[in-house]
Design a protein around this nucleic acid. Structure first.
Lengths: 317, 317
DNA sequence: CTGTATAGTTGTATAATACAACTATCTCTG
DNA sequence: CAGAGATAGTTGTATTATACAACTATACAG
């Protein structure tokens, strides 16, 4: 049961208002530019690849399409953005930044990085972690709450390859494990080469890979390698969820998709390796029938960890 | 010492932008009213006793005094606020809410409490504490550091490995070449496995890799492979610059760093492969002494391209 | 009494936003 | 294949918020 909820809500509201003011959102220009807040946000979304059409921007920024049309026209007139007609759908205009636009984006980024960087200098590292978790969690919660009250749509699981999939899976692993237990280059090169090898065999019917993208970036993955263990044993590998999607249930859904694939393929067993201490993941594995089969200590990645092998017996019809 | 500060800053900025949008600050009315954000904030500040004059509001909301004057006049005209002349200083007008104004404030508070309350329902109590501490701390930190200023710094070239380097170099290549000429999985797996192999040999003194990070992400790279060609010939590889840094001169600086390394190592030649049509890159290569040595047509990545080999003769002391 | 500063107002200009209606294009159905 | 309905984007129009500049009224120091 929660305590002080009304006070909590009041503190959140008060801090939100102050934050909005400090960030300059009731001013006509933003981030040390002569652009409006909407124009700055639009530039950032285009620069970072999350918006390539006016419709994308209208959705992301929650502005009426005529407002987006006008702010884009201004960015085009100043030479920061170019639009090109889509080859498949002539209604659609694809947006990219010009060199000048990238300079402007870089200047905005630099200015904002300086501003935020200075603001957090006096904060303890724990406080910075707290801040990041708080901001991201709350923004996500507000968005999710709004989605729940309008048209809910949850991230789609896609199967198979798309450009940058391999790289993103490697990056998520490198980022996660370097932060968790300090794995570095040996780990990252091994993930990359093993995954590259697996993906050259992706055409095999016993191999599968699934991912979830959000905001134009791949943020979760799972794979079933039906070839690298002997016999009719499947190897569940490269299961990872980005910070931004953690806690949303996507991991559970990815695991369910992978397990359904294993059962459909008729594997007698599915194996996976994980590390002691990853309790959230372990709970997911045990929920779908995995059991701890083996433990061993190792240090091959530069840090002492206990590896664990889990096994799930296939469900035969 | 802090770690991942640049990534921290980027996450803070990204979450802040999303928060601002979710809170509706680029819309014309706020908090389920037909009042502007500024008017809502003014009402709240008066109701909660933090502002009793127009000057107070101008300071708190960081608006020009004429804007405050007009928004107050509207609140007075609608009967939500009254002003009375100060007894000691006739210039000053004291502001209070009317009964109607207090009702409006209560309605705003109720609406916002519902909104925030619904948003935090799924969050664990620990997460709510984290959120509150994070929002309050950050808003305070921004306010405290507002007048500071430092000289902006340009992206730094770093040498050697850092977590996610391999993955990001692969991702930049996959993203760039899939967009340019439609390269897909075969290309991405080859880049990944060759780069993984190269990086297991990064300790060799004739190998080097340099990168540039901005906003917590690696956005440009270059490498010198001193081993995969025969004799004392260097291979310049994995030279790429992200969209966000293109046009900033960073490519030139990376190339200069790589060439300086080649000369310092005493290589007799440096070779590189590129594609016909990448004229910006070609200009950079020719500027530091590369010359076209060979051309051949190929289709191994799924698209017809003409590959070009450039050679630079080493500058011997 | 004069000069300077402050609180607040008003004239004016600019710009962002939304609603509505339009054009051009795409897709589906009969 | 033609027509209907939907979508992407543009334009006409209206409203409103914001800031700069100049003003009035008042306070205070010398």
């Amino acid at each position: 049961m929660k305590s002080n909820t009304a006070t909590d809500i009041e503190r959140i509201r008060s801090a939100s208002r102050k934050l909005v003011r400090e960030l300059g959102f009731m001013e006509q220009t933003l981030a040390g530019t002569n652009l409006s807040p909407s124009a700055v946000h639009a530039l950032i979304e285009i620069a970072e690849g999350r918006a390539t059409t006016a419709r994308d921007l209208s959705d992301l920024l929650r502005l009426e399409k005529s407002s987006v049309s006008r702010l884009l026209k201004k960015l085009i007139d100043t030479g920061d953005v170019v639009e090109t007609q889509d080859e498949d759908d002539f209604r659609i205009k694809r947006l990219t930044l010009t060199t000048r636009g990238r300079d402007l984006f870089a200047a905005i980024a630099k200015s904002a990085q300086t501003r935020v960087g200075q603001a957090i200098v006096p904060l303890a590292e724990d406080t910075v972690r707290t801040l990041i978790a708080g901001l991201e969690g709350y923004a996500e919660a507000l968005a999710r709450s709004r989605s729940d009250s309008t048209a809910p749509d949850e991230p789609e699981i896609a199967e198979g390859y798309r450009p940058t999939l391999l790289a993103r899976v490697v990056e998520m692993h490198a980022h996660y494990y370097s932060g968790l237990v300090g794995f570095g280059l040996p780990f990252e090169t091994k993930v990359a080469s093993e995954l590259a090898e697996f993906m050259t065999g992706l055409d095999a019917p016993t191999n599968g890979i699934w991912h979830v993208a959000s905001g134009g970036r791949i943020r979760a993955s799972i794979a079933i390698d039906g070839q690298d263990l002997e016999g009719d044993i499947a190897h569940l590998r490269w299961f990872i969820v980005d910070d931004t999607l953690r806690g949303t249930g996507i991991g559970k859904r990815l695991l369910d998709a992978a397990i359904a694939f294993c059962d459909a393929q008729g594997f007698s067993e599915t194996h996976l390796w994980t590390f002691q201490g990853l309790d959230t993941a372990r709970a997911l594995y045990e929920r779908v029938g995995f059991q701890l089969a083996e433990e061993k200590a190792g240090r091959q990645w530069g840090a002492e960890v206990i590896e664990q092998r889990f096994v799930r017996i296939g469900q035969l019809d």
